[in-house]
Amino acid sequence: MDFTTILIQLLNSVQYGLLLFLISSGLTLVFGIMGVINLAHGAMYMIGAYLTYAFVDWTGSFGLALLLGLPVMLVVGIIIERFLIDHLYKKDHLFQVLLTFGLILILNDLQSLIWGNDTHGVPIPDLLSGSITLTDTMQYPIYRLSVSAICLVLAVAMYWVIQKTRLGMTIRAGASNREMVESLGINVRTLFTIIFAAGVALAGFGGMISAPLSSVYPGMGDSVLIICLVVVVIGGIGSIKGAFWGAMLVGLVSTFGPILIPSLASVMVYLVMAIVLLVKPRGLFA
């Protein structure tokens, strides 16, 4: 592997890592603060992608599709939290796992009913459809770079909200001592609804902006869920910072791993996870 190739592979790693961070941040946020394991997180990613497909088909504009899709995702989040999750806070984690697993099955079937079983594609928006020439044979699509930029902006924004704002303060306080925050007169119920909806919207947004890069197909959320769980476990469940570095590590490993050791391509990421857990049983930043 020559130097240029290594640089491009590094770019691939960071680009994939940032996208993984965007999708897994919602999962870790919801767990860290609410103590809820949302297995339907991947299904939310899928819904985001299908909504983009449907809205682009309808309006012809990717920007409009995002504008229409995001509120829908927020509403889906609010409905699921208010009508389903809300009943299970006092129960064991197993109940949440069962509920959200059931949601995966229902949402996958709904997807099949509404949009059928064909594979769809979403065209890259014209404005970002160009590419940058890297070598004589290789180009890098501008859209891919834009997605990375959006993910970076969101990462910084999340850091700012959690560390510097009043809402972030309440969130951090709620995460470390829920009863205390409640006794201080803060409405934890509303807070939880906001956080869950934000988590769902983050997953949905991930699906929306990756729709033009990826293809839109049944069951696309399932593999995303697994890799997100790996990211979250490596980073330390509940830690946003952990999700960031976990995603970067997974990005690096899944880019360089299969090229350097092809025979271990499909287990590489899980091996790294096992090693991290052996050294730090609670993940890197828990």
Binding site: M1, Q9, Q15, T137, M138, S254, T255, P262, A265
Partner: peptide, 22 residues
């Protein structure tokens, strides 16, 4: 010969290798 993990759809690393192999 590249064999990529089934059913993953992340190909960027392989495409970079192909481009450098020419």
């Amino acid at each position: 010969q590249f064999l990529t993990p089934f059913p993953k759809v992340e190909f960027q690393a392989y495409l970079t290798e192909i481009a450098s192999l020419k």
